[in-house]
């Protein structure tokens, strides 16, 4: 691939990013001069021990936080320069999130949870219902559409979370420890699903995990230690 082809194909560019948190007078350097490129269509795993900065990096790429220094460009937008309001709209348009603890609304059914990101679009109710049905079908939960999260297993709840993450057909799917709260069997089902989304539907996925079993499903794995990329492995 030539440089220009690579540039055209790149979805995420993180350049010399630093993230410093303050605790009283103490400065905590979570990310130090970190750079990363993620091309469109890649399934990337971010691995590292607790405190290595992998979730912080995911938050920066997802527009949930801003770097102290450096630039973050996603889908051609310099998101480190956007205001809070612009970032919220940008996230709604480009990012699908999958969380470790699913983060579903307990008072809503599965289909209403999946519909949430669509409330930020101009789609009609009928269009929204169609999108929701498609997303639930993709995660194999059409039969659980009317069920509340509390009546579902962890694996099912996470599949609802994934359906919510993909229902707007986002540019990028960000998964923060998506199997961290699941047993091996349910975790495997989730990883199969993510792999299928990447391979069959071309979804670009960045997944934070500390589980080598999970990272083995990704096309590429980068390791973080103390806020820096230390190793990279391609499957």
């Amino acid at each position: 691939m030539s440089d220009s082809q690579a540039k055209n194909n790149e979805l995420v560019r993180v350049d010399n990013v630093e993230k410093i948190f303050h605790r009283g007078s103490e400065e905590i350097h979570v990310l130090s001069k970190l750079s990363l490129l993620v091309p469109t269509g890649e399934f990337l795993a971010l691995m590292g021990p607790s405190g290595s900065g992998k979730s912080t990096l995911l938050n920066l790429i997802g527009g949930l936080d801003r770097p102290t220094n450096g630039t973050v460009t996603v889908a051609g937008d310099r998101i480190d320069q956007l205001s809070d309001r612009q970032l919220a709209a940008w996230r709604a348009r480009h990012i699908g999130f999958v969380f470790q603890l699913y983060n579903l609304m307990p008072v809503l059914t599965a289909e209403r949870n999946v519909e949430l990101p669509l409330l930020l679009t101009t789609l009609t109710k009928a269009q929204r219902q169609k999108h929701v049905a498609t997303a639930l079908a993709m995660v194999g939960l059409s039969h659980r559409a009317k069920h509340y999260p509390r009546t579902m297993s962890g694996g099912e709840q996470q599949r609802v979370g994934i359906a919510r993450g993909i229902v707007t057909d986002p540019t990028l799917l960000l998964c923060d420890e998506p199997t961290g709260d699941l047993d091996r069997k349910a975790g495997d089902e989730i990883l199969n699903l993510l792999q299928a989304l990447n391979r069959e539907h071309g979804k670009t996925i960045i997944m934070v995990t500390h589980d080598p079993h999970a990272s083995a499903r990704a096309a590429r794995t980068v390791h973080l230690t103390k806020g820096q990329l230390t190793r990279e492995a391609v499957a």
Partner: peptide, 15 residues
């Protein structure tokens, strides 16, 4: 807290 943060992560505005 987590519900509100989730909504904001999905793109719901602070206002």
């Amino acid at each position: 807290t987590r519900e509100i943060a989730t909504l904001r992560a999905l793109g719901f505005g602070s206002g």
